[in-house]
Write a protein that binds this DNA or RNA. Structure first.
Lengths: 187, 187
DNA sequence: TTGCTCCTCACGTCACGTGAGGTGGC
DNA sequence: TTGCTCCTCACGTCACGTGAGGTGGC
């Protein structure tokens, strides 16, 4: 005996799918253009129809994108060709380490430039409060900020000190901050 | 009484300058195109002649580039227009923090993906040794690797554990590595 | 008719890299 | 002549973003 009701398939338009995944339409258009995610069909008005399968595929794509894998490599992964997934992932992991180290070096350079600039004289207003609000405005929570100080202090205490100095914070305050950054350790 | 010898000015061709700064020719060509660094003159063959002043300017550009400042902002800094230098530098510093956090999230995703993949079954060879040589091949020294383990362990012990597991390392080895990563602390 | 989403080009972004085709001095 | 550096377009990269100009259903 057959079921006479049609299986409930979930078909979505490009806008709905974009919203569901927190992506932009142009991102999905782009994925279609390069053949990474072509919708299974079109409706009467030539609108893209994304089916369940397409959605599953986008789920995969989205995950790998969140790992920072390039679209080209994601194509390879999904098609099953090219390097093994675990190799691609570990390569990317190593790449991230390099990128983070590069960014750390940039932070180091910035500290040096601030040290040599007349930031303090130029801008005595630009003190601890401004800096703190900068963190908060950018959505960084107090605990994250503290954690960051802790890591900075541990990684390169001298840079940390100089950085704090470049902000025009009093040496008494600096001593306080650094002490507490080191203390968090034992906890 | 005047000096009758001509001041020794240092004039360089584009190739020489590129080599001196460890940049490519096309980089310098690009800087000329966008008006960031236009050589003071040309010689008879229409070759670019970079003078002492140009070299000093490139020194500045190069420094800010090493801080990851965009060419557009460097233009503003050198021309003295726009935001103050210290503001630009601290903005960039904050941006780097965001970027590093994004990369850390990507590492987290990779760990999850490795955990859920059959990396271990697929690739039992892909053990500690392969991973270690990956680090070494990519120019990361042993001490840097150790430092990295230490930080990873401190920041998110659970992720670190899972990551090590995903590599197929024995639980005994893992315990050993993690213990030693924590120990470094007291030193 | 208004408002909404959808469509397809096609060009812009950022910091260069890469030829193609040609010149000039040793 | 060979080899070297230099020159000027002009197009490619990567992952989209941004109009421009137009359609289709409520």
């Amino acid at each position: 005996m057959k079921h006479h009701f049609i299986a409930e398939v979930c078909v979505m338009t490009i806008g709905q799918l974009a919203q569901k995944f927190g992506l932009s339409r142009s991102t999905l258009l782009h994925y279609d253009h390069i053949g990474l995610l072509t919708p299974s069909g079109r409706d009467d008005s030539n609108y893209r129809r994304y089916t369940d399968n397409d959605i599953k595929r986008l789920e995969l794509v989205s995950n790998y994108r969140e790992a920072g894998i390039s679209l080209e490599l994601i194509k390879q992964i999904i098609s099953g060709k090219g390097n093994s997934v675990s190799r691609i992932l570990t390569n990317r992991f190593r790449q991230i380490i390099d990128e983070i180290n590069l960014l750390r070096e940039q932070q180091h350079v910035i500290v040096e430039l601030l040290k040599n600039s007349d930031a303090v004289k130029d801008n005595p207003i630009f003190g601890q409060e401004q800096w703190k609000s900068l963190f908060i405005d950018s959505g960084i929570s107090e605990p994250t900020m503290k954690k960051w100080h802790t890591i900075f202090e541990k990684r390169s205490p001298e840079d940390h000190k100089q950085f704090l100095e470049s902000l025009g914070i009093s040496s008494r305050e600096i001593t306080k901050i650094r002490k507490w950054a080191r203390k968090k350790d034992g906890k």
